[in-house]
């Protein structure tokens, strides 16, 4: 029997306390920028928790998307809102009730969930059938198998959600600004730190991204994690002024963003001719899965990059 309270258990408990502590700080700190930075730190801690739970694919996604991309999005919004910050601070008349009622509701829900965790027993999992049918999917990573084969339907809809979010945020553009480049024009000092990073980091990022994409078939990684890394490289290159921000009306960037869902839908429809909707034949499972993943990676990178740049605005 293993000891009831090992060093690793202590690590887990300390990690959980840190996660909760950072979440509380992010919720209570006055400065909005500090709250955003704390949320990024929170995301990194949560990613470590996922490693401890044996979910490395989720850890990669949480670190890249949950901590990295959400953080960049929020920092960008904080910076934009600061420009137009109104001096009047919102003061609630019902300050006491406005805090106590949500606090007690939150406490109630948290303790209810904790009670469930400690009392209910879960036994059934889908892990056995997932592993039993793994040879038919052409990949060795069970998570990739679920995402692109067993539950390909979910992933097809998910990429459509991403695309819909992009269209929705483009819809917030002022009419007279449509056609301008996304985001503000970047001015960087030559040989400054950002310009140096903008040339030094993208090659490394590209190699890491390609590795995560390729390794995702058999080990850890996948289209979403790799796509996010490519998006980060793209954004960095734009921020450093190495390349210009794309125009939302440009045809090539739009084809990039739509290529993945389009190819996925095409594969799904050709499946109708053979057997049924969204069937990936066992014979060509590996090359077809990799082709879908490659297209999805490109589209995810383009869509996330465009989402971070946001609606087109004046190129001042």
């Amino acid at each position: 029997m293993a000891p009831a309270f090992s060093a690793l258990t202590l690590f887990d408990v300390v990690l959980c306390v840190l996660i909760i502590g950072v979440a509380l700080c992010s919720s209570s700190v006055r400065d909005l920028f500090a709250a955003t930075v704390l949320l990024i730190i929170y995301g990194v801690f949560v990613a470590i928790a996922w490693v401890r739970l044996g979910a490395v694919d989720v850890a990669l996604a949480e670190a890249a998307i949950g901590a990295g991309l959400t953080g960049v999005l929020l920092i960008g919004a904080v910076a934009r809102l600061k420009i137009t910050e109104s001096p009047a601070a919102a003061v609630s008349r019902w300050q006491f009730a406005a805090k106590v009622i949500p606090a007690s509701l939150g406490l109630l829900i948290a303790s209810g969930l904790a009670y469930l965790v400690l009392t209910v027993e879960w036994r059934e999992t889908l892990q056995a059938p997932v592993l039993a049918n793994l040879p038919d999917t052409g990949v060795l990573n069970p998570v990739t198998a679920v995402l692109l084969n067993y539950r390909a339907y979910d992933t097809l809809l998910e990429t459509s959600v991403l695309f819909a979010a992009l269209i929705a945020s483009w819809c917030t553009t002022h009419d007279d600004l449509w056609g301008e480049r996304a985001g503000l024009r970047q001015h960087t000092r030559r040989a400054g730190i950002l310009a140096t990073f903008g040339r030094f980091l993208p090659p490394i990022g590209l190699i890491v991204g390609i590795h995560i994409f390729w390794a995702g078939a058999d080990k850890w990684g996948g289209a979403f994690q790799a796509g996010t890394i490519f998006a980060a490289v793209w954004i960095l290159a734009i921020m450093a002024g190495v390349i210009d921000a794309p125009n939302a009306t440009g045809r090539s960037i739009r084809s990039f963003a739509v290529a993945g869902p389009m190819f996925f839908t095409f594969v799904a429809l050709t499946g109708v001719l053979a057997q049924s909707f969204l069937i990936i034949p066992v014979m060509v499972a590996k090359p077809l899965t990799l082709a879908i993943e490659a297209c999805l990676t490109l589209s995810i990178a383009a869509t996330l990059m465009l989402l971070v740049l946001g609606a087109p605005r004046r190129s001042a």
Partner: peptide
């Protein structure tokens, strides 16, 4: 498990 992991990745995105 693999199914919850895939669902969670979908959720994060």
């Amino acid at each position: 498990g693999a199914v919850p992991q895939a669902l969670i990745i979908t959720g994060i995105v």
